[in-house]
């Protein structure tokens, strides 16, 4: 089994008829994902990719029993689409849309608080459970069913680490991209906790990078839960040039977290196996498991 999706998970796609959505939903169908419906306001009653299209999330849920949605809606309307899916009480939303305004995401987070929904993204490559299904835009060529969970802030590094874990004979239980935007749904520490509680995941790889404070929060979770499963982390950006800054508020609001060195030190203190660079992640996990 995997995290976030099960063999029973039925998926709808908000924005199904768009060009990019059509391309990726076609790939998802051929990968075996149980994609059962599309939602496009004003286009209810049509068929697209041989799937029924509904005018609202509520109608699609009622007619098909879909409990998850993949949001492929342009940035101007993405927040409204996510809020509609939250109000329809879907269990899972995966939003791949890039460039959603950050204040719109603040609104989405307010709608999520106290709801039954888990949101992955936006600006996420999505969720891939090899052998089960794909909700997202990632490549699947190198993915193999296995027992390693991957939680990542970077789509490109996820592809790299999927290849390495497959080459190391480990495979993946699930890969999750938490998305590249500052305000998003599922966080790295939350994804880690899901993997810690998943009986079919034997080891967890966390892929972080400079900025924000989620890697520090991952270290806190590990300190608190002291897991038996090995956790391997890669933090990209050890040699990134320091960024130009505007004022002090950013540092004051997040209490000064952010550099790769600080993150690596926090993770190391918590007992995480650090992959020194991006070429050694699969090997580091194999060593940690043996």
């Amino acid at each position: 089994m995997a995290i976030l999706v099960t063999p029973e998970t039925k998926v709808m796609c908000q924005g199904l008829t768009g060009r990019t959505a059509t391309f990726h939903c076609g790939r998802m169908l051929s990968y075996g994902t149980r994609l059962v419906a599309g939602v496009v306001p004003g286009k209810g009653g049509r068929t697209h990719l041989d799937l029924p299209v509904y005018a609202s999330v509520g109608e699609a849920k009622g007619a098909t029993g879909a409990s998850a949605s993949l949001v492929f809606v342009p940035p101007q309307h993405a927040a409204a689409a996510m809020i509609e899916a939250i109000e329809a009480e879907l269990e899972l939303i995966v939003c791949v849309t890039e460039r959603v305004p950050v204040l719109d995401m603040v609104r989405v987070r307010q709608a999520l608080a106290g709801s039954k929904t888990r949101l992955v993204g936006p600006n996420s490559q999505g969720v891939l459970a090899p052998g089960l299904g794909q909700l997202g835009v990632m490549a699947t060529v190198d993915a193999r069913k296995g027992r390693i969970g991957i939680a990542s802030r970077s789509a490109s590094l996820t592809s790299e680490v999927v290849l390495q874990t497959t080459n190391a004979g480990l495979g993946q239980s699930t890969t999750v991209g938490v998305g590249g935007d500052p305000v998003h749904g599922l966080s790295l520490p939350e994804a880690l906790e899901l993997f810690l509680d998943d009986p079919d995941t034997d080891g967890i790889i966390v892929i972080g990078e400079i900025g924000g404070s989620e890697e520090e929060a991952v270290a806190d979770v590990i300190q608190r839960r002291k897991p038996k499963k090995p956790v391997v982390a890669l933090v990209a950006g050890r040699h990134a040039p320091p960024e130009r800054r505007m004022g002090h508020a950013g540092a004051l609001a997040t209490r000064g977290a952010g550099s790769a060195t600080q993150k690596i030190a926090a993770l190391e203190r918590a007992g995480v196996h650090i992959a020194h660079d991006a070429s050694r992640v699969g090997q580091t996990m194999r060593d940690a498991l043996s």
Partner: peptide, 17 residues
């Protein structure tokens, strides 16, 4: 020349190493 910001950061790390 790299695709993806994370991979680009990781590439610069390897180069510096």
């Amino acid at each position: 020349v790299v695709n993806g910001a994370g991979l680009a950061l990781a590439t610069i790390d390897l180069l510096a190493d």
